[in-house]
Design a protein around this nucleic acid. Structure first.
Lengths: 123, 123
DNA sequence: AATTATACTTTATACTACAAAGTAATTGTT
DNA sequence: AACAATTACTTTGTAGTATAAAGTATAATT
């Protein structure tokens, strides 16, 4: 009753749900790669999302404070420009560092061929 | 009407839903790191999951053919032993290679400081 | 004037993650 | 022997959410 591990070795609780969803991971990564931001239409193409899905997911990201939007007109058409916020950048980088750990863990398996301590020490 | 891109640059459609879910990503990674398999109880600890969640997610993975289970008794207690299957290994590695691309894309942002072609060429 | 196209937003549904409750066998405890 | 507690799970119910489909609004085209 004295040693409860700080967290399961493979729990990955840094994988924030808001970011981990595939569509939003796409959106955020595309925005990270375009510091000046992207239009709704460009994001739609880059992330392969339908209008409805993009709209919904952007709203979630805006509500979380990870993305900011500027709505206006360009060439007589409504034009929505999205940018990742400072908070969004930080959260995203934190998230990615956890991803990196997952990739690292997955890579370890390749080296390890057989045998692993099973009883007592599972780590 | 002749050039539709093969897929959005940031679509990441290799992120299989079955694997991408956090709990299942945990489970699969832990199983990859333990080629001999893991017991229900050990996985619960390693992945920080409740009994109900682990049970449910393992079922999803079994139904997908990614994990196999052997139920038996050990020391007068029911004992479930889980292992990742060949198919599961392959799918997992495919998934991780996409993750690696995400991490790579995310890293690119750090080098890039300002300016990015915006009109015509968004990639 | 009536389609068609663009750029979105809203809704409705089908899915699913998760907590809580349930099952079943075993091991103390009195 | 009876009862409570523990272990090792499974099943159920619900709350949340991703996504397709439908809707809105403006502009260009025929």
């Amino acid at each position: 009753m004295s040693n409860n591990p700080p967290s399961g070795r493979f729990a990955y609780d840094g994988l924030d749900r808001t970011i981990h969803e595939r569509a939003r991971l796409s959106i955020l990564t595309s925005l990270m790669c375009h510091p000046k931001g992207l239009s709704f239409v460009d994001m739609k193409k880059l992330c392969d999302l339908t209008d409805g899905n993009l709209s919904r997911h952007v709203k979630v990201l805006v509500d979380a404070g990870f993305v900011s939007v500027a709505k206006g007109y360009e060439e007589n058409r409504p034009h929505t420009h999205c940018k990742i916020t400072k908070v969004g950048q930080k959260q995203f980088l934190d998230y990615v560092s956890v991803l990196q750990q997952v990739v690292k863990d997955a890579a370890n398996e390749k080296k390890r061929v057989r045998s692993a301590p099973l009883k007592s020490s599972i780590m």
